[in-house]
Simulated assay, not measured.
Amino acid sequence: MEQRIVAKPLTSQAFAPFGDVIEVEGSPDRLINAGLCGRFHDRARLDFGDGRAGISVFDAQARAWPLRVDLVERHPEGSQAFMPISGARMIVVVARDESGKPMDYQAFVSQPGQVVNLLRGTWHGVLAPLGERGQFAVLDRIGEGANLEEYMLDPPLWVEPGDGA
């Protein structure tokens, strides 16, 4: 049976079970550079098994509403942060794990200036910049061994825009 979900705005509180929303919000934790720069300190739960942290650049094709999701994936050996270089918003589809299978899908829409850090082992859809091609710096685990599990959805999941999305 076809499943549809509605995307909601990306907020730190709603996204917390799946990862972190990194953004400039409120007052900085401290001022640096002779008071000319605010530091918002330690905003993501980075977590890597063996290997090391690395930064790659992804160039992803634009996606549109409704978003068809037929594949989700997870990375059991490390967290994964998506940092928009081009300013593109993105649709972020996540799910909780139940005995090795994704369940209870949720979708969020980022705003310019928001970075998403997915916790280690979080089921998520593929990178989906909304309405325009997007380039992203991606901070994730670099190392030997398998760090990708994929799960095909049949029938696919459809994500529709909600209020504020």
Score class of each variant (00 low, 15 high):
residue 104 D to G: 12
residue 98 E to K: 07
residue 93 V to A: 00
residue 86 S to C: 00
residue 101 K to D: 08
residue 84 P to N: 01
residue 97 D to L: 11
residue 113 G to L: 14
residue 111 Q to T: 14
residue 80 Q to N: 11
residue 99 S to E: 15
residue 105 Y to K: 08
residue 95 A to H: 04
residue 109 V to P: 11
residue 106 Q to I: 03
residue 111 Q to F: 13
residue 106 Q to R: 11
residue 105 Y to H: 14
residue 87 G to P: 09
residue 92 V to P: 00
residue 111 Q to H: 12
residue 85 I to R: 12
residue 99 S to T: 15
residue 96 R to W: 01
residue 92 V to C: 01
residue 77 E to G: 11
residue 76 P to Y: 03
residue 105 Y to L: 13
residue 78 G to F: 07
residue 85 I to G: 03
residue 95 A to E: 00
residue 92 V to Y: 05
residue 82 F to K: 06
residue 101 K to Y: 11
residue 80 Q to E: 15
residue 98 E to C: 10
residue 79 S to D: 01
residue 107 A to N: 15
residue 92 V to E: 02
residue 109 V to W: 14
residue 92 V to I: 01
residue 91 I to H: 05
residue 91 I to F: 04
residue 85 I to Q: 06
residue 82 F to C: 09
residue 105 Y to S: 06
residue 104 D to H: 12
residue 88 A to R: 07
residue 78 G to N: 05
residue 88 A to K: 09
residue 83 M to E: 04
residue 111 Q to V: 15
residue 81 A to G: 07
residue 81 A to S: 08
residue 95 A to W: 02
residue 86 S to N: 05
residue 101 K to C: 13
residue 97 D to K: 13
residue 90 M to P: 00
residue 95 A to M: 03
residue 111 Q to M: 13
residue 98 E to S: 07
residue 93 V to Q: 00
residue 79 S to Y: 01
residue 75 H to K: 02
residue 83 M to A: 10
residue 109 V to K: 11
residue 82 F to A: 06
residue 84 P to S: 01
residue 101 K to A: 12
residue 112 P to L: 15
residue 97 D to N: 11
residue 84 P to A: 01
residue 89 R to Y: 03
residue 109 V to Q: 14
residue 103 M to N: 07
residue 94 V to Y: 05
residue 103 M to R: 13
residue 77 E to I: 02
residue 92 V to N: 00
residue 87 G to T: 03
residue 85 I to P: 06
residue 111 Q to S: 14
residue 75 H to Y: 04
residue 77 E to T: 11
residue 82 F to E: 06
residue 104 D to P: 05
residue 83 M to W: 03
residue 90 M to Q: 12
residue 104 D to N: 13
residue 96 R to H: 04
residue 76 P to D: 05
residue 81 A to N: 08
residue 108 F to E: 08
residue 89 R to D: 08
residue 77 E to K: 13
residue 97 D to Q: 08
residue 79 S to H: 05
residue 113 G to V: 15
residue 101 K to M: 12
residue 101 K to E: 11
residue 108 F to W: 14
residue 95 A to T: 01
residue 88 A to I: 11
residue 75 H to R: 10
residue 102 P to L: 00
residue 96 R to N: 04
residue 92 V to S: 00
residue 113 G to Q: 13
residue 89 R to H: 01
residue 77 E to C: 09
residue 77 E to V: 04
residue 89 R to A: 05
residue 112 P to T: 15
residue 98 E to V: 06
residue 91 I to D: 07
residue 78 G to D: 06
residue 90 M to N: 02
residue 81 A to R: 08
residue 98 E to G: 04
residue 75 H to N: 08
residue 76 P to K: 03
residue 88 A to D: 07
residue 84 P to I: 01
residue 87 G to R: 09
residue 100 G to V: 09
residue 78 G to M: 03
residue 89 R to V: 01
residue 77 E to Q: 10
residue 87 G to H: 08
residue 92 V to F: 01
residue 93 V to L: 00
residue 105 Y to D: 10
residue 85 I to Y: 05
residue 92 V to H: 02
residue 107 A to L: 13
residue 81 A to F: 06
residue 104 D to V: 02
residue 85 I to K: 04
residue 80 Q to R: 14
residue 76 P to I: 04
residue 75 H to S: 02
residue 99 S to V: 15
residue 104 D to L: 05
residue 98 E to D: 13
residue 86 S to R: 02
